[in-house]
């Protein structure tokens, strides 16, 4: 983008380039995020699982550990999602297991995000040798494959319960957030308002808290959601391969029992399909929220008005390089401006 620094520029409104965000600034940006269909869908699903996590143990039809004589039954009225090889109710296992999944996701997400923000913002802000060291550290953590690392740590811990696993995930999973945060801080640091605050002799930590962090909210949120996704997947994976205690119910544990009791070979699809779908649904909800944040941060990704049906009706094909030309003006749209205008030449 060309920089206009001429005299009129200072007085006129700043140039809004073609690709710039041209939404009405008066509409609060927050609502912009909430108007995003993807983000809303994602938040809706998250809310559903959130409620399930809270009330799960009360609304579950059975005790998930209670064995019964209905061995390996397909879904029926008494067991909506069937039973496992010892007659335990699978729906109850899923409902009760929701809490474990979400709690671990949340703890891991929060700890990794806090670590990431601290490392990233510090690196970006102090610069110099400190920055080099911290960046190298986060790059090292990025290259080291996390899941195997988590597996060997969790595998060597005497008791690897939910919270422990969550902390291990948090401690190994902060690097991506730190990297993004550092880049953003670097570019923020050069902006006028931060420079101005600096020149006014504000204390560094105040500067970071008051000026820098608020501007990183969207990025932090994206990092948080990303880490939660990774944490959920890791935890479920660890449970599935049997590293975490199999008595802690979560969706991965259900799959562990299914895999180890030949659910596949016995065709007991009700045993492993619903739990997997829950994981996928939760993962998708988190991804959708992240898409919402992405589009919020990067307006070029936004598909405002790109409603395929509407475009087809108006026979518009939005393309780069070949601007569509409207051939049939849509009815009902007032032809702005022409009503009050007649050519002066015609009148005279």
């Amino acid at each position: 983008m060309a920089q206009d620094t001429t005299f009129t520029e200072e007085q006129a409104a700043p140039e809004r380039a073609v690709e710039h965000d041209v939404d009405d600034p008066r509409r609060a940006k927050r609502f912009l995020f909430l108007r995003n269909g993807k983000a809303l869908t994602g938040l809706g699903i998250l809310l559903f699982f959130g409620i399930l996590a809270v009330v799960g143990p009360w609304i579950a039809p059975y005790d998930p550990n209670q064995v019964s004589a209905d061995l390996l039954q397909p879904p029926s009225w008494s067991h909506w999602l069937g039973t496992d090889h010892t007659g335990r109710d699978i729906l109850s296992q899923i409902v009760v297991g929701t809490r474990g999944v979400l709690v671990v996701g949340l703890i891991a997400g929060v700890s990794a995000t806090v670590l990431g923000v601290i490392v990233g913002v510090t690196a970006g802000f102090i610069g110099g040798m400190g920055d080099e060291t911290l960046s190298a550290l986060s790059n090292v953590f990025l290259v080291i494959p996390q899941l195997p690392l988590i597996i060997i740590i969790a595998g060597q811990l005497p008791t690897a319960g939910g919270v422990t696993v969550a902390l291990v995930i948090g401690i190994t999973g902060w690097a991506w957030g730190a990297r993004v945060m550092r880049a953003q801080t670097l570019s923020l640091r050069k902006r006028d308002f931060v420079e101005a605050a600096r020149a006014n002799g504000e204390r560094t930590w105040r500067l970071v808290l008051a000026e820098v962090l608020p501007n990183l909210t969207a990025i932090i949120a994206a990092g948080f959601v990303g880490t939660v996704t990774f944490a959920v997947m890791s935890q479920v994976t660890l449970a599935f391969i049997g590293i975490t205690p199999v008595s802690d119910w979560n969706w991965g544990t259900i799959l562990f029992w299914a895999q180890n009791n030949l659910a596949l070979q016995r065709g007991a699809w009700w045993w492993f399909v619903p739990a997997g779908l829950c994981i996928a649904l939760l993962g998708m909800a988190l991804t959708l929220v992240n898409f919402g944040i992405d589009e919020f941060v990067n307006p070029r990704l936004r598909s405002t008005g790109m409603n395929a049906r509407l475009l087809r009706r108006r026979r518009i094909r939005p393309r780069i390089g070949f601007t569509p030309v409207l051939r049939t003006p849509p009815d009902g749209r007032p032809d702005v401006g022409t009503t009050a205008r007649t050519t002066r030449k015609e009148r005279s």
């Binding site: 997947m233 492993f272 997997g276 649904l281 993962g283 991804t287 395929a308 094909r317």
Partner: peptide, 28 residues
């Protein structure tokens, strides 16, 4: 962008959220 191809995005999003090992179970 802005054509039928966008319809592939939700499916892709779903697949990106499926845990790897579970897809393995389904494939088996």
């Amino acid at each position: 962008r802005g054509t039928w191809a966008d319809a592939l995005l939700p499916i892709t999003t779903f697949f990106s959220a499926v845990p790897y090992f579970w897809l393995g179970l389904i494939a088996i």
